[in-house]
Every structure is written in structure tokens, then in C-alpha cells.
Simulated scan of single mutants.
Amino acid sequence: MKEYLEAGEFVTTHGVMGELKLYPWCDDADFITQLPRLFLGRNGEKEQKVLSARVHKGMCLVKLEGVDSMGAARALVRKIAYFSRADVQLPEGRFFVQDIIGCKVLDADTKQEYGTVTDVTHPAASDVYEVRNEQGEVFLFPAVKEFLGELKPEEGFITVRPIAGMFTSGGGNDDED
């Protein structure tokens, strides 16, 4: 599992004192306000202490140590901010999206493999997993309690209980002709 995960992207400056507006790539902008530091570089190359962070209109306004002017902040616009997994304690049964991507999708009862999770989107109240099979076909799977079995990203798989036709081309029942 990756040590440094994407928190979001700095999209613009805010004010003249070096604050940055961060577009969060997580469930909630409030998550960012709890982080003690951010990193510039996917491997934690440049650590930046977070002096303050607050939610503003769905974004996060962040003040980083050493970024004290609009010019210094402007240099970070369009850069990706990362956080360390070590700085976060997730509740039991919750996982980072990046840990779900790449997991094998197995039937909870038969252990049949349906494919691999290639993306996770959040179009509504529940996540939707994009699952790609060996033939390259893509299926969308609603990640709701009724269909999900076990989430075991640390072991590289999740189990599901799909309805008939959920993982077949056209979404229909293969037995019908």
C-alpha cells in the first residue's frame, strides 16, 4: 500500500498572505483540516507543515509554513498535495479509495472472479466501483451494503453479492435466449 496518498490539488491562491485553495479529492473537505502536514511529491519529497486549514465553499483554505506571500503560493498552484497514511486513523471498516483500486472482485459465495476495480466514483449517496474483466469489459457496481461482502484491500480483494446479470454484457441474464 502506498504511504503517501493524494489529498487534492492547489487550484488558486487566496488573499495576499500565502493561503492556498485546495480542491479536495476525498469524501469531505473537513478531512484535510485534520492533517498536520502535506507533501509536495508522490513519495513525500517535500514536507509542508500545515499552519491552518479551514473549509470554505466545499474547498479547503490552507496556510503552509514558509508560504508567506501570494507569489510563493502562486508557485504551488496546479500542484498535487499528498498526505501521509501515518497521519490518519480511519474508522474500522473504512478504506482509502486508492486501496480499493486494483482489488480483485470475487463472488462472496462461489469465489468466481469478476474482474478488478479500476476506478471508484461518487455520483450519488454511494460509491460506484468500475470493474474491468479479463476481456476488457467494464461494469459499474454500486458499492452498497446489499451487494458488498467483505472488503479486504490489504489482501488484494473484495467480495460481492451481485444480482443476476450485473457482470454480463448488456446487463441481461445470459440464460435467456
Rank of each mutant, 00 (worst) to 15 (best):
Q135N: 09
P162C: 08
D174Q: 14
K111F: 10
V144H: 02
I80L: 11
L22Y: 05
G171L: 04
A143C: 06
E155R: 14
D127L: 12
A143W: 01
Q98I: 04
E113F: 05
E47K: 15
L76K: 03
F147E: 00
G115P: 06
G149T: 08
K152N: 13
Q112W: 09
D175N: 10
V117N: 08
V50D: 03
K152W: 06
A143K: 04
K2P: 00
E45L: 03
E137P: 00
V67R: 08
T159V: 11
E45F: 05
D27V: 05
R94Q: 11
E3R: 12
G156K: 10
F139H: 04
F31T: 02
F31D: 00
K152F: 04
E130R: 05
I100A: 04
K152L: 13
K46H: 12
L140I: 06
D127C: 09
V105T: 05
E130A: 11
A72D: 09
D119M: 11
S169G: 11
V144W: 07
M70I: 14
V50M: 04
M166Y: 04
G115F: 00
P24R: 08
C26S: 11
V67M: 13
K46G: 00
Q48I: 10
G41L: 03
R37Q: 14
I163H: 15
D177W: 14
P142D: 08
G165R: 10
F83E: 03
L38Q: 02
E176Q: 10
R161Y: 03
G170C: 07
E137Y: 00
P142T: 06
D68G: 14
M166A: 09
K152G: 04
V117R: 09
S84P: 05
